[in-house]
């Protein structure tokens, strides 16, 4: 049976050392406890610098906590080696960023294929899946276009298709509508909701009230601590 909690954080601290000789310590997260059940649509809100992105990165195994435990599908991943974390990110997690972050050298199709290349999916299967995903986000006709030839909204839709490539359990989006106008943002939001409707757990860092309204659970974070949680 699959674990019904997809990711759980137990007293997670993240301290960055910055500046010359790394003497300045910045506490991005200060003792965060969080349990995200499978299938949830979670919005993370808070002022800039409050630790939202760090929280998202740690949930997605992109970063490791300085202290505390991270359980991904019940397994402690807080001390795993980079190669094992890369594997989890590749198979289980999809990331969507505010600035799209598509590879400028690859076409829309190539970008969607990328996670499958790293996963070692055979080319034929990969192309079929990438085309299916592009069709789903309404960009089947633009598969040969480079990111520089696409609008912001189109780029973000490609990014969502890429995040879904390896059928992840967890989709993490960091201000996915932050660089888009309201109308385009709605299109992106509906794609996220659609994925959530199909059973993918979605966590979105956002300032956008419309996005927050779509989420079933809202998390407020300030100075590295969770200060508000609908669920709590």
């Amino acid at each position: 049976m699959r674990n019904e909690t997809i990711v759980e954080l137990v007293d997670v601290w993240k301290v960055y050392r910055m500046g010359r000789r790394r003497r300045i310590e910045v506490e991005a997260l200060r003792g965060v406890d969080l349990r995200v059940p499978r299938g949830e649509f979670l919005a993370v809100m808070g002022p800039s610098g409050s630790g939202k992105s760090t929280l998202l990165h740690i949930m997605g195994c992109l970063d490791r906590p300085t202290e505390g435990k991270v359980l991904f599908e019940g397994r402690d991943v807080s001390r795993l080696r980079p190669v094992a974390l890369a594997r989890i990110r590749n198979r289980r997690v999809g990331f969507v960023f505010q600035s799209f972050n598509l590879s400028p050298t690859l076409t829309a199709l190539g970008n969607v294929e990328l996670p499958m290349v790293f996963a070692g999916v055979p080319r034929r299967k990969r192309l079929a899946r990438a085309r299916e995903l592009l069709a789903r986000v309404g960009l089947r006709e633009r598969e040969r276009h480079l990111p520089s030839e696409l609008s912001g909204g189109e780029q973000q839709r490609v990014a969502i298709a890429r995040a879904l490539a390896n059928s992840p359990d967890l989709l993490l989006a960091d201000e996915p509508t932050g660089n888009l106008d309201t109308e385009t943002g709605r299109g992106v939001l509906s794609l996220l909701s659609e994925a959530n409707g199909e059973g993918v757990t979605v966590a979105v860092v956002t300032h956008d009230p419309e996005v927050a309204a779509a989420a079933a659970r809202k998390l407020r974070i300030r100075d590295g601590r969770i200060v508000g949680d609908d669920d709590a």
């Binding site: 992109l62 890369a86 989890i88 990110r89 990331f95 590879s103 050298t105 996670p115």
Partner: peptide, 12 residues
């Protein structure tokens, strides 16, 4: 771009 490749699961 390297950061993105890592985010989508590229191994070192």
């Amino acid at each position: 771009e390297i950061g993105v490749m890592k985010a989508v699961g590229a191994r070192n």
